[in-house]
Write a protein that binds this DNA or RNA. Sequence first.
DNA 1: TGCGAACGAGACGCGGCGTCTCGATGATGA
DNA 2: TCATCATCGAGACGCCGCGTCTCGTTCGCA
Lengths: 204, 204
Amino acid sequence: MTENTPHDRGRQTPDPQRRSARAERAILDAASELIVEVGFARMTMEGIASRARVGKQTIYRWWPSKSAVVLDVFNHLTGEQTGEALPDTGDLAADLRTVLRATVDEFNDPTMDRIARAFTAEIQRDTELSQRISGLLVEPGSEVYKQRLRSAIDAGEVRADADLELAVELLTGPFLKRWLMRTAPLTHAYTDDLVDMVMRSLRP
Amino acid sequence: MTENTPHDRGRQTPDPQRRSARAERAILDAASELIVEVGFARMTMEGIASRARVGKQTIYRWWPSKSAVVLDVFNHLTGEQTGEALPDTGDLAADLRTVLRATVDEFNDPTMDRIARAFTAEIQRDTELSQRISGLLVEPGSEVYKQRLRSAIDAGEVRADADLELAVELLTGPFLKRWLMRTAPLTHAYTDDLVDMVMRSLRP
DNA sequence: TGCGAACGAGACGCGGCGTCTCGATGATGA
DNA sequence: TCATCATCGAGACGCCGCGTCTCGTTCGCA
């Protein structure tokens, strides 16, 4: 997956029926522990294999790369909560504050932070992974915001001609920048201010 | 520089006087070419050395890591233009459009794109590098925007109680997000819309 | 002009990569 | 029930890039 692996050449796919559930769990658990302990860069396939008490081939049989394994770890961590709608209390600003505060908490969790940074790094060198992540996480996430904003337009809280795509980027972009560049800590006060600022540009 | 190099242990610093100018140029040129041709991840110290017709030791004598070399490439590329003030025609929106359009062009240049992505990736795993880049590029860049915004406050174009730090993030964060996630191409039309949106939240 | 540090070149040990070959194991289908 | 055969754990293998370490050689400075 790293730019140009010679992987799926004669790749006859193995039979998913016969896949060992024990091995899969052990691999994902080991990867999850290692990414926190040593970080993505210093985590090795051999390290995962030995901690999981699994042959390396068993990993390579089911995943093409380290980032694919970690992507699966990530999916198992967040699998249930993606696509959930935002709260809709009728007060857009309050609802945005609630959601962004929760996102702040999520990004301040060390496991999440490590995994998210690993992907951010990988995405830069692997366009294919970038598109997978984008379709799997980024766009569904932004759709949820747009849904809430449409409801706010109906309620007259937001002007009807607002560019919702851009509005979502205004809410998430600055957040992302601050986290990425580590220019300042992510706090509830910060996202509250952010919501206030963005609301000014959205009101009728 | 990559998390934990055993580098500066007994490191007696070599004499900068005797440094070969020819070797330095050749190394920076080779690195600059290679980062475009194969990308940061697949670029190796051995590759730089052989293309520059230089011993590996000569690289390691003057730079601690691959990212340090590329940081120098980057500095030599942009060295002259950092810290320049934004244009001030008296029309803030127009000036912001001008600057952001120029930034779009810069990020659409393949060399710049590769190098910037390499740093974005490295920053995620190397906190020290992150702080260096932040102090060297990000904060000076944002200061330039804040300067222009202060001038706009004096001119009555922007409300006096606006949070300028946040305002700059609103202008650069969405831009960064779109570039990072590759969700959509960076165009002049996009940044123009962005400026319009942000201006709404800044006007008195 | 002579000293010595930086130079080009490349050998070295190390560690992780991705592939491969082993028996052993255990689910599936006759 | 039992034979079959894909997947399993384990680890050897060749490869490559790392960072260090010699070698002569070159070239700047006194």
